[in-house]
Amino acid sequence: MSGIALSRLAQERKAWRKDHPFGFVAVPTKNPDGTMNLMNWECAIPGKKGTPWEGGLFKLRMLFKDDYPSSPPKCKFEPPLFHPNVYPSGTVCLSILEEDKDWRPAITIKQILLGIQELLNEPNIQDPAQAEAYTIYCQNRVEYEKRVRAQAKKFAPS
């Protein structure tokens, strides 16, 4: 494992614990031996107030490669969400998460999670990743928002 990646992720964890947006979660997972795995984080993004996503808490896994922060983490909703920019596998399609697009090593975990929260309610229809959600979003916004509200209710924190 890269010392650069681990040191950056340790800084990220410290900064997150000191200050993070209300309702968001970002925690490194534990290895079988109980030690912390900084390369694999369990996160959760709350649906934004005043949107059909409100009330939901959407679980996301963030996986970092050894060359982080040169390369972005892979962000994957578990379980996958109904959304035009979420692949059926759950992987998020967002330009700041793509090395050859808008990724920059200075982007923080907090910025990534806030960017994904923004994307939930403002899909990028130029870059669809899920045919069904994309089609319904474009053709029947009322039905799309109904499905999103049902999903938010399903993923409401207990």
Rank of each mutant, 00 (worst) to 15 (best):
D33E: 07
S158W: 11
L119V: 07
L6T: 10
Q130E: 08
L6N: 13
L113Q: 05
K48E: 08
Q151Y: 08
I116M: 15
I116N: 00
R147H: 08
S2R: 05
A129T: 02
W16P: 01
G55Y: 15
D66S: 10
P72S: 10
K18H: 08
P84T: 10
N85E: 06
K65E: 15
E78G: 13
Y68W: 06
W16D: 00
I136K: 07
G3F: 11
K154Y: 09
K49F: 13
F58C: 05
V27I: 12
P105E: 10
K30I: 10
F58G: 04
C43A: 12
L119G: 02
L63H: 12
K65G: 11
I109Y: 03
I125N: 08
P21W: 04
Y87T: 05
H83K: 04
W41H: 10
P128S: 13
S70T: 12
F155S: 10
D66V: 07
V142I: 13
I112N: 13
A44V: 08
F77Q: 00
G90F: 02
I96H: 06
L81K: 03
Y134A: 10
R8L: 15
P123T: 00
N124H: 09
T35C: 02
D19Q: 01
G115C: 06
Y137N: 00
K101N: 15
K110W: 04
E143N: 12
L57R: 12
C43G: 11
M36G: 04
D100Q: 11
G90P: 06
T29E: 13
P157L: 07
D127K: 00
T29A: 10
A5D: 05
G90E: 00
V92M: 01
L60N: 03
Y134E: 06
F64E: 05
I107N: 14
P84L: 15
V142Y: 14
E132T: 08
N37Y: 14
P32M: 14
T29N: 15
N40P: 06
W16M: 02
L60Q: 04
A129M: 01
I4L: 08
T108G: 10
N121K: 10
K74Y: 15
E98G: 15
G50Y: 14
K59L: 11
H83S: 02
K101W: 08
V142H: 13
Q126A: 11
K110D: 07
P46D: 05
E99D: 15
D67R: 07
I116K: 00
N40R: 09
C43Q: 03
T51L: 01
A44S: 08
F77M: 04
I96Y: 05
C138S: 13
D102K: 07
P128M: 03
P46Y: 07
A10N: 14
C43F: 06
